[in-house]
C-alpha cells in the first residue's frame, strides 16, 4: 500500500498523486521521478500561461494596441482625404480630435485601471479640452463653458458614483441594471437643469421628471426581482413565519 508523505493517508497502489492533498508520490515512484517532475513543471507552465492569458491588464493592453492602430490610421486617413479634396484642413479636424480623445481615454483605461479617481479626472480634463477645441473650430460661440463643461461634469460624477456602487455591490445581477438606469434618470435631471439655466436663466424641470419617475418604478421592480424573488423563488419558504 502507498502512503502519502504529506498528509499521511493511504492510497491506491497505482496512484501517482495523492487524491487528498495533491502531493506527488515521489518515494514510491523513484523510477518515474523525472516523468512526474517534468509532468508537474509542464502542468505548472500550462497553468501559468493560461493564467497570464486571462489577466485583465494583458487583455486591456491588446485592446489598447488594436484600437490605437485603428484610431491613428483613421486620423491620418481622414486628414489626408480632407487635404486632398479641399487643399486645406476643414471638417476632418472634428473626427481627428474625437479620435485622439478616444485614444487618450483608452490609454488611461489601460494603464490607470485601478486608480479610478485619477483616470476619471484626467479623462474629464481631455474631454473638456475636446469641447473647447470644438468651440474654437466653430468660431467661439461661448456655449462650451456654460453648457458643455457642466453637462460633462455631471456625466463624469454620475459615472464615478455608478462605478463605485457597482464595485462595492456584493451581488451583480439585475441590481446593476437598476443602478444604471437610476443614474441615467438622474443625469437627465442634471442635464435639463443645466439647459434650462443656460437658455432661460432659471431652474425648471419638465421632461426629466417624467423620465426619473418611470426609471424609479422600473428599477424598484428590478431590485425586487433581484433581492427577493431570485434569492427565494419559493415565497412560502422565504416568508415562513
Amino acid at each position: 500500500m502507498i502512503r502519502c508523505t504529506n498528509c499521511g493517508v493511504e492510497l491506491e497502489e497505482n496512484a501517482n498523486f495523492c487524491s487528498l492533498c495533491g502531493a506527488p508520490l515521489l518515494k514510491m515512484a523513484t523510477d518515474n521521478l523525472d516523468i512526474i517532475n517534468s509532468g508537474k513543471t509542464l502542468q505548472d507552465e500550462k497553468l501559468s500561461m493560461d493564467f497570464q492569458k486571462l489577466t485583465g491588464f494583458q487583455k486591456r493592453k491588446i485592446f489598447w494596441k488594436i484600437s490605437g492602430i485603428i484610431l491613428i490610421s483613421a486620423i491620418i486617413i481622414t486628414l489626408l482625404i480632407d487635404f486632398i479634396a479641399s487643399q486645406t484642413i476643414t471638417w476632418s479636424k472634428y473626427p481627428a480630435t474625437i479620435s485622439s480623445v478616444l485614444f487618450i481615454n483608452f490609454t488611461l483605461n489601460t494603464y490607470l485601471h485601478k486608480k479610478i479617481i485619477l483616470l476619471l479626472a484626467i479623462s474629464f480634463l481631455f474631454t473638456t479640452v475636446m469641447f473647447f477645441l470644438f468651440d474654437i473650430y466653430a468660431g467661439e460661440t461661448g456655449w462650451e463653458l456654460k453648457l458643455g463643461v457642466p453637462v460633462i461634469l455631471a456625466l463624469y460624477i454620475t459615472i464615478y458614483s455608478l462605478v463605485f456602487l457597482i464595485r462595492d455591490a456584493k451581488q451583480k445581477g439585475l441590481n446593476i441594471i437598476a443602478y444604471s438606469i437610476i443614474a441615467a434618470g438622474l443625469l437627465c435631471i442634471y442635464t435639463e437643469a443645466i439647459i434650462s439655466i443656460f437658455l432661460q436663466s432659471s431652474l425648471s424641470f419638465g421632461w426629466s421628471l417624467i423620465v426619473l419617475v418611470s426609471v424609479a418604478f422600473i428599477s424598484a421592480l428590478l431590485f425586487y426581482i433581484h433581492y427577493r424573488l431570485k434569492k427565494a423563488t419559493d415565497l412560502k419558504r422565504f416568508f415562513h413565519i
Partner: peptide, 23 residues
Amino acid sequence: LKEGFFWYYLEHLPQHIPIEVDD
C-alpha cells in the same frame, strides 16, 4: 443556511461533503 424574511431556514444543497486535508 438561507435567510428568509422572518427566520433563517435550511435549504437542500445538492453538493458532496468536502473532504479536505486537516492542516
